[in-house]
Each structure stands twice: as structure tokens, then as C-alpha cells.
Simulated scan of single mutants.
Amino acid sequence: MSYFAGWSRSSYFTAVFQALFVTFLWSTSWVLIKIGLEDMPALTFAGLRYGLAFVCLLPFFWRSKGRTELRQLNQSGWLRLMALGLIYYALTQGAQFVGLAYLPAVTVNVMLGFTAVLVALLGMGVLGERPSVWQWIGIIVALAGGLLYFYPVQIPQAQIVGFVAAAVGVLANAGAAVLGRSVNREAQLRPLTVTTVSMGIGSALLLIVGLGTQGLPALNWQSWAIIGWLAVVNTAFAFTLWNVSLRTLSAMDSSIINNTMAVQIPVLAVIFLGERLNGREVTGLVVAIVGTLLVQLGRKRKSMS
């Protein structure tokens, strides 16, 4: 019963349901992105999604006196927010959209799953965080799962761009996670402020590059509906609901729930996108998920000890 100290059992399970609902929304984003990419260029699509989401978050940002926080921010703080916007939104999300334009959703999902492994390794040099024994075990297990999934390594010519983009996305996502953790350690800005400002910067860069290199095609109602849903529901609303759930859930709880996306995405890809997995790929996917979970839980256990 001590685990529920400070809140009621009903509020805890409500928070769990909220977090699970958010991860489901985020998982469906992959299906919607794959469908939208049939008519929209990747970078322009990503810029429109996060640009509209930024607009949706602005009213909450202004009402919560976000401008006061920004006025007190020094040059170093602004540079860190700009770097976060560049790395997490422009690079990570842009690379993810490009990767999904060339690769199956399951493949991109497996590759992005190695973000936790890279974060653990990068944390050694950047944040001085030494991986625990369980994290090292998780790293080995995750790598073994990845090798099993991709074995034998045979990359079709048409998918090389996608693999390069997904690899860039993994590196950028890991760098953004380390930078974001460093920013949040200082506790100078609220999550809403960090997200709104960095999203605005990153989405602006995505739109500039996307429109400059790929242009804006004539979009039909389905394309605009996908952009609107991804921006309003799967980004702005989901972000807000996720932060509400974090008022009750522990870091370990949220980490475990967030990891369910690694299972939800392949299931949705098989059902709605017609992607297929053989026995070896399913086994590799499961092993990689287990390894990633060990890496995440190993860090949480260490921080709690």
C-alpha cells in the first residue's frame, strides 16, 4: 500500500489509463504518417505537423506566463533551447519522416528503439552517468535483438536513403534526450515552455527546408485531415495529457508505459499497413524490446538507489 502513498488508488489507475491512451495515440501517428507520405513530401509534412501543433500550444504557453520565463532566460539558455529545437524536431522528426518514406514502419521502429542504448552510452561522457549492471545487460540484449531482426544484412538500393535517415534520427534522438535531460536538470523552465519554444524553432526550420527543397503540393482533404489530427490530437492534446499523467506516475511507471509503443507500432503496422514479419524478425523485435526496457529500468533503479 505504501506504493500508493500520497494519492488514491483510483487516481493512480486513471493516470495509467491516460498514459496508455497517449502512447496509443503516438503509435497511431506512425500509421497516419505512412498514409500521408503517399501524397506529401516528408520534410514539408513534418514541418506542417509540428508547426500547427506549436500554434495549438501557444495559447496555453501565454496563459501560463511563459513570456515571463523567457524574459529571464540568458543567452546560454536560449542557445540550449535552439539546439534542442534543431536536434529533436528538425533533425530527429525530419529524419523519422524521411525514414518512414522509404522503409517499413516496423523497421524504423526497431532502429529508433536503440535510442535508449545510445543515451546510456552518451550519458557516460556528457552527463557523467555510468551505466548500471542491468543497463549493460540491456545494451547487449538489445544489440543482439537488433542483429537478429536485420540478419542477414541486405539493404535494397531503394531503401539506402531510408536507413541513413533512420540512423541520423537515432543519433539525433539520443542527443536530444541527453540535452533535454541536461536542460531539465537545471529546472529553470517548465516542460511546457521547453516544448513550445523548441517545437516552434524546430518546426520553422523543417518548414523552411521542406518548402525550399520539396515544395508544397496540392493537398486534398485527407492530407489536411491527417496533418490536423496529428498536430492537434496526437501532439498538442497528447502532450498535455501525458504531462497530466506524470503528476501521479513515477519515472519508472512512465518509462514502462512509454515502452509499450515498441509493441503497439508493429501490431498497427501489420493490421493497417499490411506489413509482414517472419518468425526471426518477431523474435528479434521482442529481444530488442526486452533489452531496451532493461536499459531504461536500469537507469531508473540506479537513480532511486
Score class of each variant (00 low, 15 high):
M1C: 00
Y3D: 14
Y3L: 12
A5E: 14
S8F: 02
R9E: 13
S10W: 03
S11D: 14
V16L: 11
F17G: 04
F17R: 01
Q18D: 05
A19E: 01
L20I: 01
S27E: 08
V31T: 13
V31E: 06
E38T: 12
D39I: 00
R49W: 10
L52V: 14
A53H: 08
A53W: 08
C56L: 08
C56V: 14
L58P: 02
K65N: 15
G66C: 11
R67L: 14
T68S: 14
Q75T: 14
W78Q: 06
L84N: 11
L84E: 05
Y88E: 12
T92Y: 15
G94P: 10
G94L: 02
A95F: 07
G99W: 07
A101M: 01
L103F: 07
P104V: 02
T107H: 14
T107Y: 09
V108K: 00
N109A: 14
N109V: 01
V110A: 10
V110C: 09
M111W: 04
T115I: 15
T115C: 02
A116F: 03
L118C: 11
L121T: 09
L122N: 11
G125R: 11
V126D: 01
V126S: 03
L127H: 05
L127F: 03
G128Q: 13
R130D: 01
W134R: 13
W136D: 02
W136H: 07
I139R: 12
A142F: 05
F150K: 08
Y151P: 00
P152N: 07
V153Q: 05
I155N: 07
Q157I: 01
A158F: 00
I160L: 15
G162Y: 05
A167S: 15
G169E: 03
L171M: 13
N173F: 13
N173E: 05
A174D: 05
V183F: 06
N184V: 05
N184K: 13
N184E: 13
R185L: 12
G200R: 08
G202E: 04
L205M: 15
V209Q: 07
G210C: 05
L211V: 15
G215D: 09
A218F: 07
I226A: 14
I226H: 11
L230S: 13
L230H: 12
V233Q: 12
F237S: 04
A238Q: 06
F239A: 03
S245K: 04
L246S: 09
N258I: 00
N259H: 15
I265S: 07
P266E: 03
N278E: 03
V286Y: 09
V286E: 07
I289R: 01
G291W: 02
G291D: 09
R299I: 00
K300D: 11
M304F: 06
S305H: 11
